[in-house]
Amino acid sequence: MANLVEPKLIKPLYDELQKERFVTLATIDYETGGPNVSAISWILAKDEGTLYFAVDNRSRIIQNIGENNQVVINLIANESTYSIQGTAYIKEERLQDVPLKLALIEVSINEVRDVMFYGSKIVSEVKYDKTYDKDAAARLDKQVMDAMKKA
């Protein structure tokens, strides 16, 4: 059976991307021309065809997107693994109403591909824990997600 390919997010993926969650982001490294993978959690589906994510505006991700705007976001959800390929650009160099200097990146989705290997499903999704002040982390997470929703 061939893996499914969609031009935009299916509803279960859109719903999962309405809150902070762990994903990996692949960009093309601006120095080496090779792949670069980062873990991020501030991500939001603005609509079925658009993703927003926030990263420190000094991040290598920003430099990579500046040189080559093709990105892939890997999402584990809906009992499967998805590769979300798109074109990224810096929507805001400094996300408003957030104490950190974060850039807001917009990704226009080109395709969503179910890349789970045949005959299997995800039975447990990735979980993580903030290792610093949990109250401060929760406040910051809320500020970032709220700012992305307003953008």
Rank of each mutant, 00 (worst) to 15 (best):
A39V: 13
T131Y: 04
E111P: 00
F22C: 00
I40F: 09
W42M: 08
Q85I: 06
E31A: 12
D47V: 09
V144H: 01
P35Q: 12
I109M: 10
N74A: 14
E111W: 05
M145P: 01
S120H: 14
V23D: 02
L95R: 03
G86T: 08
V98A: 13
L9W: 03
K11R: 13
L13R: 06
V112A: 04
S59L: 11
D47Q: 09
A77G: 06
T81W: 06
D146L: 10
V23R: 06
A54Y: 00
A147D: 04
D135K: 15
F22G: 00
F22Q: 01
S83A: 15
T50C: 05
K142R: 11
G119L: 06
F22L: 07
K149I: 10
V72N: 10
Y89N: 11
N78A: 11
E67L: 00
V115S: 10
A103T: 03
I73F: 05
S83I: 02
Y89M: 10
G119H: 08
D29A: 11
N69Y: 00
L104Q: 05
E111D: 15
A2L: 15
Q18V: 07
A2C: 00
I109E: 03
K134R: 09
Q63T: 06
V5D: 01
K149P: 05
N78M: 00
Y128T: 12
L13I: 11
G119D: 06
V126G: 01
R113L: 05
E125P: 01
D146K: 12
N57Q: 10
E106T: 10
N74I: 11
Y82Q: 01
N78F: 04
I122P: 00
N110Q: 11
Y89F: 10
L140W: 03
N74D: 07
D141R: 12
D114C: 11
T24V: 05
G33T: 09
Q70M: 03
F117Y: 15
D29K: 04
K121C: 08
M1E: 13
S38F: 15
K121Y: 14
S83T: 05
G49W: 09
K91R: 14
Q63H: 12
L44E: 05
G34R: 14
V23F: 07
E16C: 09
K134N: 04
T27A: 04
E16M: 08
M148G: 06
F22D: 00
A2P: 14
A136R: 11
S120D: 03
L100Q: 12
V115W: 13
K150D: 10
N57I: 06
E67F: 06
N57V: 07
I84R: 02
M145S: 03
I105G: 02
Q70E: 15
A54K: 06
E16S: 13
S83Q: 13
V144S: 02
V107S: 01
A88C: 08
L9A: 02
V123H: 09
T24L: 04
K46I: 09
Q96V: 04
N64W: 03
M1K: 14
L75Q: 04
A39C: 04
W42N: 09
G33L: 09
A137W: 15
K150I: 01
A26N: 10
E92C: 00
A88W: 03
G119C: 09
N69I: 02
Q18P: 07
T131A: 07
V55I: 15
T50F: 05
S59C: 08
Y30M: 02
D114W: 03
I40H: 05
K127G: 05
I65D: 07
G34D: 07
R58W: 10
I43K: 08
A137Q: 06
E20A: 09
A88Q: 01
